[in-house]
Amino acid sequence: MNSKINLSTEICGIKFKNPIIAASGTFGFGEEYNELYDVSILGGISSKGLTLKPKDGNEGIRIWETASGMMNSVGLQNPGIEKFIELGIAQMRKFDTVLIANMGGHCMDDYTKGASLLSDSDIDMLELNISCPNVKSGGMAFGIKANVAAEVVSSVRKVCSKPLIVKLSPNAENIVEMAKACENAGADSLSLVNTFQAMAIDIHKRKPVFNNIYAGLSGAAVKPIALRMVHSVCQNVKIPVIGLGGIYTAEDVLEFIMAGATAVQIGTINFNNPLAGESIVNSFYELCENENISNLNTVRGCI
């Protein structure tokens, strides 16, 4: 890592040593990957998606490889917010990196109760997932209609004193309207995009691969669409945007930053290359040096 270049970035007063964050659901609470490399090298870690009550997640096939990516239908398996506060936070605090708690829900009440618990805990930021495509009731509906999303965001805002990131679904009716609605409802930052609703069929069984029929597509296959969405949103909101969707390389990171993102998240690539976090951070420093970028503000949103 080249310490001469300063690639630190700030979102809502929280300082990230670099703009690369591990995406929710691909990185657990960080400890598994920390067996392979010191995850403190990352700008931040977004926790596995949490819900008010513990969840076992979905039955049947949960992951499926696709051309240049994957689909998942894990269904928010998690220990519940209370357990996370009791054990998960201390575990994540061992790492010198920004701690983002990602939270999903099934109904308004879940969101507000969960957010108020997390607001009083030792997290740095809350990432509100209004867009999980794999939870039958709720999750997706909140992520599609801008007015419904705004309602959730403003309720959560009222009980949440931590910086609030709202994670948007690319399945929203209109991603820009959705982003503006969330900004107006009190979001401090937006992260986009979550996975694209997708499908696979087992032709031999003549059945959908996933029990929920549809699942979330991620990986390199979606990157150009995610980049376009991040670009359009950045043109239309004032709050910082965290870009994600198929980022595999340092060059991908720079593309999202040039499109206007303040920071990025890496997800699917962690499965393809378990050392991706470390190697993308290191090669991002090298790339910026080669491109004569000493401060990301000089290129952020240059497109």
Partner: peptide
């Protein structure tokens, strides 16, 4: 992932 992080094999 093979590491216990993704919960794809739970």
């Amino acid at each position: 992932c093979g590491l216990g992080a993704c919960l794809g094999c739970s």
